[in-house]
């Protein structure tokens, strides 16, 4: 049993069958990549995992519990954190405030009314936030508004916030999309470091084969809403079906 079990999931948008009979099992503490050409249903699948979409049929189990019908914040509190293609962070708040929100959410849950106490006197949360910023090399930008950070820093900020919540499963949606090669390599190193330092499962949707083959331990190839193959990176590289799906994309062949 994997930590995440997707069984016979179907999702239809009008006449378009976005997902058909998707089965996926993500092993605990592994890095699992989901790849596929545009329109293969990667994002639809991801949205079904985090509560943004509800599949027409099928089941999605996280750690033995169904996530279907739950709100996004409930699924997050179960231990699934999501990193977006375009970093979603609190732009008009400072780096420290961003981090503190994540730390409060971890400590206090979806809602608590603490309307009087000074947030900077919550020592436990402040310490944790500062520690997280240190370990993610963001401490020197503590008072900066996140909207004015570079793309790479925004990505780092978003991942740092997700990690502050100590998730068991981290979902990454094309984390290096639109990044320069240097930033991409930094992100790969960051994710490798995260993987080495914690007990965490990472599921990653990615176009960039360089990223996929640097990180993934298992790869699922999705095409036209159906998983074609699931295997180790070595076997995926030479798989004829994959080549066919990508119509001879050289990166795959190489």
């Amino acid at each position: 049993m994997g930590i995440l079990e997707v069984k016979n999931v179907n999702k239809r948008f009008g006449g378009l069958k976005a997902l058909s009979e998707v089965n996926l099992s993500v092993e605990e503490n592994s890095v699992h990549a989901i790849i596929g050409p545009n329109g293969a249903g990667k994002s639809t699948l991801l949205n079904c995992l985090v509560g943004k979409l509800i599949p027409d049929t099928g089941s999605v189990m996280f750690d033995g519990q169904s996530v279907l019908g739950r709100n996004a914040y409930e699924i997050n509190q179960m231990g699934i954190s999501r990193v977006f293609q375009t970093p979603e962070i609190f732009g008009d708040l400072t780096v420290m405030e961003n981090m503190m929100i994540a730390c409060f959410a971890k400590r206090d849950g979806a809602f608590t009314l603490q309307a009087i106490g000074n947030m900077m006197k919550e020592k436990e949360v402040v310490d944790k936030a500062e520690h997280m910023l240190e370990s993610m090399n963001l401490a020197d930008k503590r008072e900066m508004h996140t909207a004015s950070m570079s793309r790479g820093d925004k990505r780092r900020m978003e991942i740092a916030m997700c990690l502050a919540q100590e998730p068991r499963l981290l979902l990454l949606d094309e984390p290096t999309a639109g990044m320069a090669r240097a930033d991409t390599n930094n992100t790969i190193d960051l994710l490798k470091k995260i993987k080495d330092e914690r007990d965490i499962t990472i599921a990653i949707i990615e176009h960039d084969m360089h990223v996929v083959f640097s990180l993934a331990e298992r790869i699922t190839v999705l095409a036209q809403g159906t998983p074609l193959v699931e295997d180790t990176p070595e076997n995926i590289k030479g798989h004829p079906k994959v080549r066919e799906a990508y119509l001879g994309e050289t990166q795959v062949a190489a």
């Binding site: 985090v50 709100n71 996004a72 914040y73 409930e74 997050n76 509190q77 954190s81 999501r82 977006f84 979603e88 962070i89 609190f90 732009g91 008009d92 708040l93 405030e97 503190m100 929100i101 994540a102 409060f104 959410a105 971890k106 849950g109 979806a110 809602f111 947030m119 978003e158 916030m161 919540q165």
Partner: peptide
């Protein structure tokens, strides 16, 4: 702080486990 988070980005708020 949470109220300012609502103003700033409700998507991130939701995906940070906050209602």
């Amino acid at each position: 702080l949470m109220l300012r988070a609502i103003k700033s980005n409700q998507t991130r708020m939701m995906y940070t486990g906050l209602n």
